[in-house]
Amino acid sequence: MKKEELEAQSLYENIQKREALLTEFHNLKPNGKSSALRVVGMVSAIAYLICAFPEVIEQPVLYVFLIIIFGVGAEAQRENRRLNKRIDVLHQLFQSNV
C-alpha cells in the first residue's frame, strides 16, 4: 500500500508541476494590450519631454528620433527577456515529459 501511495503522490506532484509550468507558459504569451500600452507610454514620454523642454522641438528632429530609438531598444530588450523565459518554460515542459 505504501508503494502505491508514494507513486500516486509522485504522480500528483508531477501533474501539479506541469500545470504550473503550463500556466506560466501561457502567462508569458504576448498580447495586444501590452503593445498598446507601450505605444501610449512612448507617446506620453515624448509629449512630456516636449512640454518640459520646449527647446527640444526647436532643435533638429534627431532628438525625437533618439528618444524613440532608446524606447524601442528598451522594449525590444524587455520582449527578448519574456521570450527567453517562455522558451525556458517550454524546455522544462519537454524535459518533464521525457
Score class of each variant (00 low, 15 high):
25 F>D: 05
8 A>N: 12
21 L>R: 03
75 E>D: 15
92 Q>V: 00
44 S>C: 06
20 A>H: 08
42 M>P: 00
80 N>K: 05
39 V>H: 11
66 L>F: 14
30 P>W: 07
22 L>S: 00
22 L>T: 00
30 P>F: 04
33 K>C: 10
49 L>F: 02
89 V>W: 02
44 S>D: 13
57 I>P: 01
68 I>A: 05
28 L>G: 04
71 G>P: 01
22 L>R: 03
95 Q>D: 12
32 G>K: 11
24 E>C: 06
18 R>L: 13
73 G>E: 07
69 I>Y: 06
19 E>C: 05
35 S>I: 04
29 K>Y: 04
54 P>E: 03
39 V>F: 13
98 V>W: 00
24 E>S: 11
4 E>R: 13
54 P>N: 07
28 L>W: 09
2 K>P: 00
34 S>P: 00
75 E>V: 01
38 R>N: 12
88 D>R: 12
54 P>R: 03
76 A>R: 02
70 F>Q: 01
83 L>I: 02
81 R>T: 12
68 I>F: 04
23 T>N: 09
80 N>I: 03
17 K>P: 04
32 G>R: 11
4 E>N: 13
85 K>W: 08
29 K>W: 02
29 K>Q: 15
72 V>P: 03
9 Q>S: 13
66 L>R: 11
72 V>N: 02
5 E>W: 08
67 I>Q: 04
76 A>N: 03
17 K>S: 06
39 V>Q: 12
77 Q>I: 14
56 V>W: 00
41 G>H: 07
75 E>L: 02
94 F>S: 07
59 Q>W: 06
55 E>D: 15
54 P>W: 03
47 A>D: 06
76 A>C: 06
73 G>P: 00
89 V>I: 15
79 E>L: 09
18 R>K: 14
19 E>Q: 07
73 G>C: 10
29 K>I: 07
66 L>C: 09
48 Y>F: 08
46 I>W: 05
62 L>D: 14
57 I>E: 12
86 R>T: 07
81 R>A: 10
45 A>W: 05
16 Q>T: 04
2 K>L: 13
35 S>Y: 11
33 K>D: 14
36 A>Q: 15
65 F>Y: 10
80 N>V: 04
61 V>N: 11
6 L>D: 14
27 N>Q: 13
57 I>W: 06
9 Q>E: 15
36 A>C: 09
68 I>K: 01
60 P>Q: 05
40 V>F: 13
28 L>V: 05
73 G>Q: 05
33 K>G: 10
75 E>N: 13
44 S>L: 09
11 L>D: 14
56 V>M: 07
85 K>V: 00
62 L>N: 09
84 N>Q: 10
30 P>Y: 08
38 R>L: 14
30 P>Q: 08
38 R>H: 15
14 N>D: 13
22 L>E: 11
44 S>P: 01
91 H>E: 12
80 N>S: 05
21 L>P: 04
76 A>V: 04
82 R>C: 01
21 L>Y: 08
60 P>Y: 06
32 G>C: 07
46 I>T: 10
49 L>H: 02
45 A>C: 07
46 I>F: 08
44 S>F: 03
59 Q>A: 11
63 Y>V: 09
51 C>K: 13
40 V>M: 15
76 A>D: 01
72 V>L: 05
24 E>D: 10
49 L>I: 06
18 R>H: 10
36 A>L: 15
65 F>T: 06
78 R>C: 02
10 S>I: 10
7 E>G: 05
36 A>D: 14
77 Q>C: 11
52 A>L: 10
58 E>A: 14
79 E>D: 07
52 A>E: 13
63 Y>E: 09
